[in-house]
Design a protein around this nucleic acid. Sequence first.
DNA 1: ATGAAAGCGCTAACAG
DNA 2: CTGTTAGCGCTTTCAT
Lengths: 339, 339
Amino acid sequence: MIKMRDIADNAGVSVATVSAVLSRRVTKIPVSGKTRDKVIDAIRKMDYHVNDHARSLRSGRSNTIGVVVSDITQPFSGEMVRVVEQEVNRRNYNFLLSDTQNNREKEKFYLSLFRQKKIDGILFVGATNELEDEGILMLVEHGIPVVLTERETQQHNVPCILVDNKEGGYLATKHLIKEGHKKIGHITGPRENAITSQRMEGYRSAMNEYGLTCPEELIVEGGFTLDCGYKAMEELLGQVDIPTAVFAFNDTLALGAIRAIRDRHLSVPQDVAVVGFDDIPMAAYSEPPLTTVRQPILNMGREGTGLLLDILNGKYPKNYYKKIVLDPVLIVRKSCGHT
Amino acid sequence: MIKMRDIADNAGVSVATVSAVLSRRVTKIPVSGKTRDKVIDAIRKMDYHVNDHARSLRSGRSNTIGVVVSDITQPFSGEMVRVVEQEVNRRNYNFLLSDTQNNREKEKFYLSLFRQKKIDGILFVGATNELEDEGILMLVEHGIPVVLTERETQQHNVPCILVDNKEGGYLATKHLIKEGHKKIGHITGPRENAITSQRMEGYRSAMNEYGLTCPEELIVEGGFTLDCGYKAMEELLGQVDIPTAVFAFNDTLALGAIRAIRDRHLSVPQDVAVVGFDDIPMAAYSEPPLTTVRQPILNMGREGTGLLLDILNGKYPKNYYKKIVLDPVLIVRKSCGHT
DNA sequence: ATGAAAGCGCTAACAG
DNA sequence: CTGTTAGCGCTTTCAT
């Protein structure tokens, strides 16, 4: 295993100089062009790679952030991870993915792992439905910067960046109302989830604004998956007076719901109109193409990551708090129109 | 930052003993129950977490494997990552995710990063379409164990585990033929990809077996995404004599193709039947539900990871070579039947 | 069964 | 601008 000492010897300089060349971007220790070239040459010639463990051990920084998602197989999570990965790399950081599966044990495991690996900060992505705020509190207490994307927490002053979920729910529901629907159901996300409440609030507020009621039985708990959407829709369809439209917490649920509707030999949107949330790629390709509320994933991922990295690099005063709310956009396709 | 020294002091033992307790599973250094308890107590009491950097630096092992996917947003990749993550954790390892985006620069970046982080081994997941075998060769030359899942390489003796892709293509095509189709198109994966050729071979072999020809224009290059499937299908539909059935390299392409067919006001399966490959969750929920060839993702992920970890733990002789071929299963749904 | 001590490869003072 | 040197926190002989 070739090490810095070898490079130093080969280039005829000291290890400190090699280190300086390698960390030029950040330490700004001046090195003459000539020396620099010699070092770079030796590095190439010998195919040298720094030992990140030694580096991190010594420097106290890992240049790595933890990225927590609840289910990497969910399209929204996947897209966010992709965006975050790009942003993180662009700024010379790495990330450690944690897929919690909404499982408390796994959450604890990863929180612990993050500490072992001396993670510099943590980005929470999307609606983790089990992780209690206590976990976040613990991190904050240990001085580990945390940023939440598409997730909120009441108790602590943790920066977060999300879409206006209430507005999104409102937009979706209002669209359905404008299309002439009066009996509109809602398939929610996991019940404990803050985002779930917000989108539901938007739904309620639109209903109220137009003088429509939303009795208990019109609101059924879904979750995140296709299967959850299917089951929730079955419940809705089992009622005596079935809704003519449904607003689902996310696109995956909506797609599951559409399958359930078809399996009852009803059609979308003629019998039941459907609106989703997220605008995952599949939304444009489903039958019918899904009307949905688009989340600005690219911006959310970029800004969330950027904010965290800025915090890590001391660009903000301690205890700085920031909440960024992005605008959702209604994307009208065919799942609830007349056409 | 509380360290091993602190635990040792608190428990009234030496750091060596604390270390022995912590690494009991692997080092098997004997420690008396009494001492063990004292140490465990101190660790809990003081909320101690080992410093993995120090550990790795000293021991030369990172207990981490690199996991390379070409696009984390693809359902197949996401599912594999989930399975691998579980298996890796179960065996007290961690993983570093590399999403190469089929981009040579990113591949190089990650291969380099893997070396910086002293990754113990690397698992390639699925059809990376750009990464040349030279990358793998380089790893092998540096003594880094590599295992491929759903991917093959000719030149080197790298263990791999995959489904019988030719058989899968054969199964899909034969099913179409049995349903009465004669003019069957094929939307392929990325052209350079070995898996692409294998599935195509299966397609060809079924066609030949039943005395059907597959002229050039029936085979069109797709890729991986919904969009690719859509475009490829448009090409097929633009021909004077359009095929009555299509076998797509994967489900995502198939779903894209179905959208294209519908957009031409044709229906599936009456006008054009479609079969996919993978059996992603969405396949069962699409309209119509997609007939497809199921990959045993769970087994592939588990066995691939298991094989790599076994190699890392010296369970196999050096240069041991193993190729595991799993059976694909045809899942018949509604996208090509009479019903 | 436990402890002492060497040192993994690097960065960050500090000296020059 | 470059070199010397002291550890970062841990694992691992080697003693005892």
